[in-house]
Simulated scan of single mutants.
Amino acid sequence: MKITVIGGGPVGLTYCALLQQGGHSVRLWSQTHPDGLNQRFDGTFSGDHVIPGAGSLEDAVKDADVVLLARCAQGMQDVLDRLAPILDGQTVIFSAELSFGSIYLAHALMRSQARAGIVSWSTTVATAQRRDGVVRVGTVRDVIDMAVSGGMDAQDGLRLCQELFGDRFRLKSSPALIGMSNLNPPIHLANSLANLTRIERAEDWENYQCITPVVGRMIEALDTERLALAGRFGFEVRDVFDHYMMTFPGIRRGSVSEMAQQVYERAPGTMGPRSLETRYITEDVPFGLIPLCELGRRSGVPMPLHEAAIGTLSTYLGRDFRAQNGMLETVVAELQDLLGAATS
């Protein structure tokens, strides 16, 4: 199968390697690596992979069966606006459904009268970081929730994902549910706030080790608000405890902090961010959390901890995170239409 991966970060590069290992024809469209690259990997798997570049976005899409979006959320709107008019029956996979980008793409496809199948994943297939030019693959997840839209048959979408990355996907009813299932934004928000000076001073710190009992308690409380929002629309989404159990098979169930310490002890070396420009903040807050808060306000579900944590981080950094999400109004309006009277 011919797949174009859009996004040259560590996760996007890991997808290219995994797909090549599966015998697929892969190209990368990335402004950072326009001509492709030879990339070394270590961790869960190791070796060198030659990843060809795709040239222009038009070329990247034209000959592809599947377009796999692993781009940072800040650049998502521009890519989707450019992508929608040139799609012609391909399947677009969102890895992961952080920004409700699939909702935005469906709206853009309707405007441009183009067609595409859309698949939303609740999280990434793999975790990965780049250090000193090497991509370290932390884990390949066993279970990933997914949903389809754009008129795509659900079973066709499931079979496609299985062909690409194996039998690890579970079908869910709605991309809105998938968007509410992403646990990374609240986890990253709590850990970033508690370790903000480490990030600012570019210190080396272990991500999972620093999910201490106080950080874990905040993550659990944020999760309670997220679950209440999902429940408002009749969605059953996995909680943070199941998230850890599914992401890291073999750990013992406990508090969030206890499970995070097990992850650290088993495989140290997953480092926390060393810059205030980390995706933990610049992506997860405006694109992952603010849409949930706005949906909560419009549907009468209070999310005071989310609001307070975002407000605190905004004050620390002197930023208006809401203004940084140009998709927000379209996404929330489309979600209201999709979810119907529950938001009125």
Rank of each mutant, 00 (worst) to 15 (best):
Q74I: 02
P52G: 04
G288H: 05
R253Q: 15
N325A: 01
V148I: 12
H24G: 10
V135S: 08
E294S: 09
R274I: 07
T247D: 12
F248H: 10
V135Y: 05
D153E: 15
T330S: 13
Q324D: 13
D223P: 02
Y280R: 07
L105H: 06
L339D: 01
R131V: 14
V331H: 01
T224W: 06
M259C: 10
I6K: 01
V215M: 05
S95M: 03
G288D: 10
F94C: 01
A323N: 06
D63W: 11
R226Y: 00
M259K: 06
A190Q: 09
A106D: 15
V67P: 04
T343S: 15
M76R: 06
G101V: 13
A84V: 11
T139V: 15
M245S: 13
R115Y: 12
F165A: 15
E206M: 02
L69A: 08
L317V: 00
Q77D: 06
E258M: 01
G75H: 07
L292K: 02
M146E: 10
R115E: 13
S56P: 09
S314L: 05
R279W: 12
V263D: 01
R266G: 04
C293N: 08
G250C: 07
Q129E: 10
L189G: 01
V119G: 02
L276K: 02
G272P: 09
P185R: 02
Q336I: 12
D156T: 14
E294Y: 06
V214E: 15
D78L: 11
V263Q: 03
P185F: 05
R111N: 15
V66F: 04
T139H: 14
Q209K: 15
E220D: 09
V119T: 11
I199Y: 00
F94Y: 06
D223F: 00
G117L: 14
R226W: 05
R168I: 15
R71M: 11
H107P: 10
L229W: 02
A96L: 04
F241R: 12
T312K: 10
L158E: 12
G311V: 01
M110G: 12
L28V: 04
N191D: 06
V240F: 02
E307M: 06
D153K: 15
G43V: 03
L28Y: 09
A341C: 02
G326V: 03
F100C: 00
V237L: 11
A70V: 07
I6P: 00
D78H: 03
V26K: 00
D42E: 14
A176R: 01
G288Y: 09
D88L: 11
R279N: 09
C72R: 12
D142W: 10
C210Q: 15
G300K: 12
L18D: 08
P85A: 11
N184R: 05
N184T: 03
M76L: 12
P286G: 02
V240K: 03
E97S: 13
N191K: 00
M1W: 05
V61T: 12
D48E: 12
E283T: 08
G179Y: 10
A54K: 10
S95K: 08
L164H: 09
L222S: 04
N38S: 11
N191P: 01
A128M: 14
C16T: 05
A194W: 12
R253S: 14
T32Y: 13
S122P: 03
S102V: 10
V5C: 04
S149N: 07
V240C: 09
L227R: 00
Q155R: 14
R136D: 06
L328S: 11
G151S: 07
A309M: 15
S174W: 03
Y244R: 04
G22D: 13
R201I: 02
C72W: 02
